[in-house]
Design a protein around this nucleic acid. Structure first.
Length: 546
DNA sequence: AAGATAGCAA
DNA sequence: TTGAATGCTATCTT
């Protein structure tokens, strides 16, 4: 295309011109195999990585599809080095396979023996090979299945795991589609997963990941272990399974700090698996408590590092990872790929949106000017004080007031990170506040009042990131962000702001003090939001007043 | 046994 | 880099 939205560069980055009329179409196709790296106002940068290419390949896209995408939307000819590199990298996936021989022993096989010879010389892989029965295969121990996949990925020869899975103890599970049906893309995701037996399904927030899990369980019909991030999420899984499947309360167990039940379907938190006593993992027994036929990893991009270690030994069990984004802030995407499995399905965004199943919130970054006095104080402050000063700038309060007035009649959440600031805001807006110190029953009361509409404005601290589900909110105003995981923020945002029945899109505002560190941190946040398909607009505080 | 509280990890 | 959450365990109380 002579004036396409993409520029493909020979360093394997791809620039996307955001304002271009075809930008969104190009973004959706590009996101299949490239990762968003930076997302400032005008030009977004994507990077074509090996892992991205292999994930796309495992999800059924081939090199020619990906090159066609680049050629279709690229303004200039695609550099030959890039197309050669894409073909070469994609071609590496599947050259090595892990299979069972006729006796059921695990074998590492290769189509061409040169590759096999090369990897067998590697000093971290050599010890895992226990025999060389035929020129095109090596024997490996069952316990080494995960480790060898990790090592092979590291040296650039990812193996396709075709060795199959233990059936697990059969257990009858049916979907009960009364008054609802599995959406077409959910069905498709489950079908592809069931065929592959392990891997990750990537769906945007609100697209019904739990149902994909439930349907996968109904397909495999075995005892299932579900791993989740926190107890609220555990309860949501439980409720959803009771409502949507034939499972009864007696068949679903919770394995957490409070209760330790092991039932045919058991829901456990990641934390309990990582809990140690006397240097040993205290709850390892859970993994072998039953002959699990399926393990579901919820929010797989948040999987704690120690769980990878444990997962390395679980390669014979079917594994389903669910997530909205594969990007991790600790760079362990490779472990997700080799230990949980490759990406099997990514959402055809356009279709899901067109079918009205999700409508992501519109995000606005509002830049606020600091008054001269505050600017001076900021400039003189020590580094570790600066962020706090910028984040809690008083100038923000007026802007919040204006935004609240602008969205009169809607349910609004004001989110802050500093307790002092929350106090001040609650006072200024004459609204109730909820923080970690608020007693549980008082929280529940306020949430309930908010749900039914008695209270339309709440000032909340980070508690809102975790333990609440307030889909009634249609406006969120973030006054100060956090250093912590920005992904998590984006995740919870999806939980807070659901597509509204009225058809109005939800709005999310982030207040940023202009020309401060505040602005730098906002960059990262933007990236995750843009990655998950939220639109992003930068506003000036003066524009709000007008 | 059940509930409250403190300390720890990440 | 900080500050505010979480879940888990152990300990103490009733």
């Amino acid at each position: 295309m002579a004036d396409g939205p993409l520029i493909v560069q020979s360093d394997r980055t791809v620039l996307l011109e955001v304002a271009h009329p075809d930008a969104e179409s190009a973004r959706h196709e590009l996101a299949i195999f490239a990762e968003l790296e930076r997302a400032p106002e005008h030009i977004h940068t994507y990077r074509i990585t090996r892992l991205g290419l292999w994930n796309a390949r495992a999800a059924g896209h081939d090199a020619e599809d990906m090159l066609a995408t680049l050629e279709r939307w690229s303004r200039f000819p695609v550099p030959p080095s890039v197309s050669i590199d894409i073909r070469e990298t994609v071609g590496r996936y599947g050259r090595l396979t892990i299979e069972r021989n006729d006796e059921g022993a695990l074998m590492l096989r290769a189509i061409d023996t040169a590759v096999l010879t090369e990897v067998s010389r590697n000093k971290r892989i050599q010890p895992l090979l226990i025999g060389h029965p035929t020129p095109d295969s090596y024997a490996i121990d069952a316990w080494a299945r995960g480790h060898i996949k990790q090592e092979l990925l590291k040296i650039g020869w990812p193996a396709e795991d075709l060795a199959g899975y233990t059936p697990g103890t059969p257990h009858p599970i049916e979907l009960e589609e009364n008054g609802w049906v599995l959406r077409p893309y959910q069905r498709q995701a489950v079908d592809i997963f069931t065929e592959g037996g392990s891997g990750v399904v990537v769906l945007p927030c609100g697209a019904g990941k739990t149902l994909v899990g439930a349907a996968a369980m109904a397909d495999t019909k075995t005892t299932t272990l579900i791993l989740v991030t926190n107890t609220v999420s555990a309860r949501q899984w439980r409720d959803e399974l009771l409502k949507r499947t034939s499972l009864t309360a007696e068949e679903i167990g919770e394995y957490s700090g409070q209760v330790k039940e092991v039932k045919p379907v058991t829901i456990a938190t990641y934390q309990i698996l990582t809990a140690k006593r006397g240097g040993q993992y205290a709850h390892l027994a859970l993994l072998d408590a039953l002959d699990w036929g399926l393990i579901v990893y919820d929010e797989v991009h948040l999987l704690p590092a120690p769980v990878f270690k444990l997962t390395a030994d679980l390669q014979a069990r079917r594994r389903l990872g669910l997530t909205a984004t594969l990007v991790r802030e600790d760079g362990r995407e490779g472990d997700v790929f080799s230990l949980i499995g490759p990406k099997r399905f990514d959402a055809p965004w356009k279709e899901i949106e067109a079918q009205g199943f999700i409508s992501p919130a519109a995000c606005y970054e509002v830049r606020v000017d600091l008054p001269a006095g505050d600017r001076l104080e900021y400039a003189a402050a020590a580094d570790d004080e600066r962020y706090r000063l910028a984040a809690t700038a008083h100038a923000k309060i007026d802007v919040v007031r204006q935004l609240v007035a602008r969205h009169e009649g809607e349910r609004i959440l004001v989110i802050g990170q500093y307790l002092d600031q929350i106090d001040v805001l609650a006072e200024a807006l004459n609204a109730p506040q909820i923080t970690g110190a608020t007693p549980i029953d008082e929280r529940e009361e306020l949430y309930q009042a908010f749900r039914v509409g008695e209270v339309s404005l709440l000032v909340v601290s980070k508690v809102a990131n975790f333990s609440i589900d307030l889909p009634e909110a249609s406006v969120a105003i973030q006054v100060s962000g956090s250093f912590g995981s920005r992904q998590e923020e984006a995740q919870r945002l999806g939980r807070l702001l659901r597509p509204k029945e009225s058809g109005n899109t939800a709005s999310f505002y982030t207040l940023i003090a202009r020309d401060t560190v505040d602005q730098d941190f906002a960059q990262n946040r933007q990236r995750f939001l843009a990655e998950q398909g939220y639109s992003y607009t930068i506003l000036d505080a003066d524009a709000i007043a007008a």
